[in-house]
């Protein structure tokens, strides 16, 4: 395991000051960060950790306030999945939280951590930094581009990397037009999940947070009357896995027709991918098998299957699964 110091922050200001120092990172549930450190997979690993769980006032809460569902960054995924308000009105978020990993990891993992996890790629995560991938070293290579890429992007590389977004929460936040509040600013979710270029020191991130910037709260606008949301996740196993394809859908229906649709794909590209074609296909239609299938088909347009050695274990299946997940998620909002 990488060697690191660990200090408990008592205030968010203290945490902010501490994490602004080079080689320092905040730690919440630690379910991703500690495995990253244990495997010594990166030369960029922090050497100092600042514990956010000890910050007062606590950042673990869920409340409706001012037209938003406000979720503290340290709220556990279990708490979100079990919250009655979230389940009833922000269904996709509760479903996404419930879909993460296993009960033990959901008890430990937080919503803030889920949107700040590191990329998930066998080369990036390989123990002892044996593969110098470009997310760790700008002089490196994307080994997955022509290597093992079964789990990876079907919409091409992002800044040269084909790893797919591993977060279940991220596509929901984009679909629901969430705000992500940090110690520096309030981000729109769509802007937050912009992966820095590999030349940037933040190249290992799946978001655009600046050094020392800490997520404190998630704000999700209360959906309009007639709105429903759903999150569908697909992976090889029925639990524990990271998503291989996911779809977050928010629809608003009036007079039997969709007046607004937000459809965002996860795990098929390096960041949440807004399926604009699918949204267009759905608006003005009643939600039924025909419109849902059309939305699914539209969501899967523009895909690019990655080359594979010997033609085995391709990621081509994702194209089919996008269609099905979008279709199912749309129908779930009927």
């Amino acid at each position: 395991m990488n060697l690191f110091t660990h200090v408990n922050a008592t205030t968010i200001a203290e945490a902010t000051a501490a994490t602004a120092k080079a080689g320092t990172a905040p730690i919440a549930g630690g379910s991703d960060l500690l495995t990253y450190l244990r495997t010594m997979c990166s030369p960029n690993a922090p050497t100092n950790l600042v514990n956010l769980k000890t910050v007062v006032p606590s950042m673990a809460y869920i409340k409706e306030e001012g037209g938003f569902l406000k979720v503290g960054a340290l709220t556990t995924l279990t708490a979100i999945a079990n919250d009655s308000t979230t389940l009833a009105k922000y269904t996709a978020l509760a479903q996404a939280a419930l879909s993460v990993a296993s009960p033990e990891l959901r008890n430990q993992g937080t919503i803030g951590g889920n949107i700040c996890q590191k990329p998930r790629c066998q080369y990036f995560r390989f123990d002892n930094d044996d593969f110098k991938c470009l997310r760790k070293d700008p002089a490196g290579t994307c080994f997955a581009l022509t290597g093992v890429n079964t789990y990876h992007s079907v919409f091409g590389p992002l800044n040269g990397c084909v790893a797919a977004l591993p977060s279940d929460i991220a596509p929901v936040l984009v679909a629901m037009n969430a705000n992500i509040v940090t110690t520096v600013k309030t981000w729109k979710a769509a802007d937050f999940f912009v992966v820095p270029n590999v030349a940037d020191a933040r190249r290992e991130q799946i978001n655009a947070l600046a050094a020392g910037e800490i997520v404190t709260e998630i704000q999700i606008p209360t959906p309009a009357t007639g709105s429903k949301s759903a999150y569908m996740k697909w992976s090889f196993r029925k639990s524990i896995d990271f998503p291989l394809v996911s779809a977050a859908v928010l629809t608003t229906v009036a007079g039997g027709s969709v007046t607004a649709a937000s459809i965002v794909l996860g795990a098929v590209y390096g960041q949440p991918r807004v399926a604009t074609g699918a949204q267009t296909a759905l608006v003005g239609q009643a939600i039924n098998a025909t419109s849902a299938t059309a939305a699914g088909t539209a969501a899967a347009t523009g895909t690019t299957v990655l080359p594979t050695p010997g033609g085995t274990n391709s990621n081509s299946y994702k194209v089919q699964i996008i269609k099905v997940m979008v279709q199912k998620a749309v129908l779930a909002t009927a």
Partner: peptide, 19 residues
């Protein structure tokens, strides 16, 4: 990984033990 010959499914979550 064919070019290097490394078995890259070394971590437990990639062993795909069914739940």
């Amino acid at each position: 990984d064919i070019p290097s010959g490394a078995c890259i499914s070394t971590q437990f979550n990639e062993s795909m033990v069914p739940t």
